[in-house]
């Protein structure tokens, strides 16, 4: 692509990654979550592909595959944490530790250190979606033959 597209992409890729991370991190407070933030962050990969061609994303296939596997395993392990009660029981909610602060009832702006296992699950699903959608984008790019357009 042209110099204009490359320059804009250099600015927008970090912004898209940062916004995706924000949506995942605040998934238990604001609209959004793992799926949505992961899709936003994966759009940065598509932008990389459009602006810099196949050679820029060629090496990302194996890291994305590993990322998706780790995210899926982490999600299932977090679900098994509550197996003493039920599958996917929120054992960390209100426990006082990591993400375990109690929530005041009623409308309030929220506090990042709440939610129990929900923020951790958001991160697991977010990494899974980044890896999955990024791997799909890279696979489509590699199937196109590898010519930089």
């Amino acid at each position: 692509m042209s110099v204009v597209v490359r320059t804009i992409a250099r600015i927008l890729v970090p912004v898209a990654l940062l916004f995706g991370g924000y949506v995942i991190l605040h998934g238990h407070l604001t609209p959004g979550g793992g799926f949505q933030g992961g899709a936003v962050a994966a759009s940065a990969v598509a932008l990389l592909l459009v602006a810099f061609g196949t050679s820029a994303v060629k090496g990302l296939k194996s890291p994305f595959a590993v990322l998706e596997d780790l995210g899926g395993v982490a999600f299932v392990v977090l679900g098994f944490l509550g197996i003493g009660y039920t599958f996917f029981f929120n054992v960390l909610a209100g426990s006082g530790g990591l993400f375990g602060a109690p929530v005041a009832p009623g409308p309030n702006p929220g506090f990042l250190n709440t939610g129990g296992t929900l923020p951790l699950m958001n991160w697991a699903v977010g990494f899974k979606v980044i890896g999955g959608l990024g791997a799909v984008v890279v696979l489509f790019a590699l199937f196109g033959g590898g010519d930089d357009r």
């Binding site: 238990h28 299932v76 679900g79 996917f88 909610a93 209100g94 109690p102 009832p105 939610g115």
Partner: peptide, 27 residues
Amino acid sequence: SQGEAATNNVVTAIVFDYRGYDTLGEA
């Protein structure tokens, strides 16, 4: 949901806590 899931976002509480099986299927 604020007491059980310790979350202000009720949608996230439903998606990841009350209906975790559903999210596992989506993944």
